[in-house]
Design a protein around this nucleic acid. Structure first.
Length: 471
RNA sequence: GCCCCCAUCGUCCAGCGGCCUAGGACGCCUGCCUUUCACGCAGGUAACACGGGUUCGAAUCCCGUUGGGGGUGCCA
């Protein structure tokens, strides 16, 4: 018989949710849901300075944004101090740990470069100024385990130092807290980053010394790396999950993409509108054993593609709703909100921008000309569009447009007929009008834009541009 | 230095001894569509790091080399 599957995500509150942590959370969640187990949270807030409630809230916010729901009440490691201390005491009592005096930097060479004196093992020092408790690592033998992702991994004990389990200030270290809490939470699968592979032997040694029955399964996920193939770093890379939200990425696209770093759906269908769906999403096929063992490059280009796919799949209403926060952040939003007709105009043009953006933050830039008093003229576009014939063309368009029925298909037809009549190239003919109205050479379809702006405004801008050309 | 991990197109994922003249996706390039830009559609480009084994047969197994990464804290 096997015990019910229980996995955990154990972040420490650092003030933001790291992309790598987010992926660790996601893979734990997927594994739990795939196996029908529980996905638990443990906040590793032993570092007192960082255990502020608002910093912990940041973690919950990130998980909620992604849609990763957790089971049971999260455990706060800071509440578990008594248990950690008891574990240290028990190791001390059983002879598995000992008090160790610090070795000054200058003296380390006398102890094989170590920051401690192995002879302390037999000194039976007891508590004292500056003394920490270290675990007595066996001198011979090796510890090994069969990693779900990597197969057998083995480390000789002679290569493991006597690590600290209780600092001189009395606080327990990560090692002892981690082992004690995993046992307490009855964790069956430890799924974490590859950077923690080398602490696993210590974990196992501690667990055994504490007399905890059995051991969990381990799965060490490959790291997410940058272009230089290095672990994502706070300094050089965009590692804050929520920054991606601010940059206009959808959470479902984020989840979709993150799932494919180190893993791929067995049916080959990469774009999943509901990646977390228990029946249509990734959970049914997510086997932790299938996760790749080599590092994966975080490729924003592919993320953009995935995000674009998700954006285009949204209903117009949904796309509009999701765009609003970005519209509200635009510097012309004041003008927008002062205009009662603005929402309707935005709604009319939004479907045209939906196929043109890859992130929501690009939306305002596509529709700004409609809501600004004057379009922001891009000089390059202007120079390219305002060819020799431009002034004459604009005169004709201004004259004709005053009579045209104000509907996109009609405008299209009349406009092209006019181009034909003047013997102008279709592409070149629309350019001056586009630049006059929008300020740029690229943007939403011209005629739809004209309808949204209204005839008066269109004529006003055309005349203004025409005047600018002089002659 | 020492320990551990990794190694298929530029990138992500397939491949788990014969189905591989290596497949899909992103990117890039070309064409079609077209009022711009996109979307869409149709093509193209591009990889088993190297050397030894094992085997009738290896991208797939083993060993080594090289290269990359992670860890070496009284951080987690």
């Amino acid at each position: 018989m096997s015990s019910p599957v229980r996995v955990r995500f154990a972040p420490s509150p650092t003030g933001y949710l790291h992309l790598g942590s987010a992926r660790a959370a996601l893979f734990n969640w997927l594994a739990a849901r795939h196996m029908g187990g529980a996905f638990l949270l443990r906040i590793e807030d032993t570092d007192l300075d960082r255990s502020k409630p608002e910093l912990i809230e940041v973690i919950y916010e990130g998980l909620r944004w992604l849609g990763l729901d957790w089971d049971e009440e999260p455990i706060h490691q800071s509440d578990r101090n008594d248990a950690h201390q008891a574990a240290v005491e028990s190791l001390l009592a059983s002879g598995h740990a000992y008090w160790s005096s610090p070795v000054a930097e200058a003296d380390r060479e006398n102890f094989g470069g170590r920051a401690y004196d192995p002879a302390d093992r037999d000194r039976d020092l007891g508590p004292g100024e500056g003394r920490a408790v270290r675990f007595k690592v066996p001198e011979t033998g090796a510890t090994s385990w069969v990693d779900l992702i990597r197969g057998e991994i083995s480390v000789e004990h002679e290569h493991i130092e006597d690590f600290v389990i209780r600092r001189a200030d009395g606080s327990p270290t990560f090692f002892i807290a981690n082992v004690t809490d995993d046992a307490f939470m009855e964790i069956t699968h430890v799924i974490r980053g590859e950077d923690l592979i080398n602490v696993t032997p210590k974990y196992l040694l501690l667990r055994e010394a504490l007399g905890i029955e059995g051991r969990p399964e381990f799965a060490h996920m490959p790291l997410i790396v940058n272009e230089q193939r290095k672990k994502l770093s706070k300094r050089r890379d965009d590692v804050s999950l929520m920054d991606y939200r601010d940059r206009g990425f959808l959470p479902e696209a984020m989840v979709n993409y993150l799932s494919m770093l180190g893993w791929g759906p067995s049916d080959g269908v990469e774009v999943r509108l509901n990646p977390l769906d228990l029946t249509d999403g990734f959970p049914p096929m997510f086997r932790i054993e299938d996760v790749s063992s080599s590092p994966a490059f975080f490729d924003v280009k592919k993320l953009l593609f995935i995000n674009g796919e998700h954006l285009r799949a949204l209903s117009p209403k949904e796309f509009s709703a999701r765009s609003m926060p970005y519209i509200e952040a635009a510097d012309w939003f004041e003008r927008y909100s002062a205009d009662p007709g603005a929402p309707a105009r935005l709604a009319a043009i939004l479907p045209e921008v939906q196929t043109r953006v890859e992130t929501l933050s690009e939306v305002p830039g596509y529709v700004d000309f409609i809501f600004m008093e004057e379009p922001e003229i891009d000089e390059k576009s202007w120079n390219k569009a305002m060819v020799a014939d431009a002034a004459g063309w604009l005169d004709k368009v201004i004259e004709a447009a005053a009579q045209w029925p104000w509907e996109a298909a009609e405008l299209h037809e009349r406009f092209m007929a006019l181009a034909e009549e003047l013997g102008a190239n279709r592409r070149k003919f629309q350019a001056p009008v586009r630049v006059a109205l929008t300020g740029r050479s690229v943007g939403p379809p011209l005629f739809e834009s004209m309808v949204v702006m209204g005839r008066d405004e269109v004529l006003r801008r055309l005349r203004s541009a025409r005047a600018e050309l002089g002659g």
